[in-house]
């Protein structure tokens, strides 16, 4: 099975993140840039499918120069090669234009299965999988906590408010995964060394038949007008339990009328 995994580089969600004051885009300079966490689960799932059914795993990233680091990191887990859509005109793209570019790239890669994270930790818009499927005219199975492959039939289980759903489709398809699906492997030393030699193809916009005016800030379908930091919550009373902590807690709840 020919699998393409979408990987996005994002600012680490475990530390403070900021938007730039000049153009309201993500401040990548001050951030610790990492692979979007959910995408690691997508990579792991792709590798498991390859191990069971054979085939090839390709990483596809759209992002600035420094996204190369995340591509190498992704490759060190085990995928075969990578494609990097890289073009200065892409800066400031919205989700709609991002899906246009990624679907154009996918159009050249002939994937039976496109795997991606259910959402990115920065934008968190959770819309790319369905946007890509809509553009490519293929099925989307989203939010998978379990994926089974039986020949060309894909079946996922996904959690809902009420319980869970079982959904099925034939390849080609886009499948997005939650972090409940597997446990991503750590790159081995051998994997890290091998990743340095794996092919990474750089694709400029021109090769995708997408005009610069259709993407980036120029082509964006929405705009950020302004942003501000929310004032941090201030802390209140802190007591140390010396035998009466529970009682003190209830006294607080009583003054706030919760008991």
């Amino acid at each position: 099975m020919n699998i393409v995994v979408l990987v996005k580089q994002v600012p680490d969600s475990g530390v403070d993140r900021n938007l730039r004051t000049d153009d309201n885009t993500v401040d990548r300079g001050s951030a610790n840039n990492v692979i979007n966490e959910m995408d690691e689960y997508a990579i792991e799932e792709a590798l498991k499918i390859k191990e069971a059914h054979g085939g090839e795993v390709t990483i596809l990233t759209m992002g600035p120069d420094q996204a190369t680091e995340s591509i190498r990191k992704a490759l060190s887990m085990g995928p075969d090669k990578a494609v990097h859509v890289l073009d200065d005109a892409l800066a400031g793209s919205c989700a709609v234009t991002t899906s246009k570019v990624l679907s154009a790239a996918l159009g050249q890669l002939n994937a039976d299965l496109v795997l991606c994270g259910a959402e990115s930790t920065d934008g968190r818009v959770q819309v790319l999988p369905h946007m890509l499927a809509e553009r490519l005219g293929v099925a989307a199975l989203t939010g998978a906590r379990k994926l089974t492959v039986d020949g060309s039939t894909l079946t996922i289980e996904r959690q809902t408010e009420e319980g869970y759903e079982v959904i099925t489709a034939e390849t080609p398809a886009v499948v997005s995964v939650w972090d409940t699906i597997n446990e991503p492997r750590y790159p081995s030393f051998k994997g890290i060394m091998a990743a340095k030699k794996k092919p990474v193809q750089t694709l400029p916009l021109g090769d995708l038949g997408v005009a610069p005016a259709e993407v980036g800030r120029a082509g964006a379908t929405s705009a950020v007008l302004e942003h501000s930091k929310r004032p941090p919550r201030s802390s209140g009373t802190k007591v140390t339990d010396e035998g009466a902590g529970g009682t003190q807690l209830v006294e607080f709840l009583a003054t706030e009328k919760f008991v």
Partner: peptide
């Protein structure tokens, strides 16, 4: 840092006492 009321202590002591109270 964001708690309006915090108890520094073992939850296995604090929670039963809270419930009792």
């Amino acid at each position: 840092e964001l708690a309006d009321f915090g108890v520094v202590g073992d939850l296995f002591k604090v929670v039963p006492q809270t419930a009792e109270e």
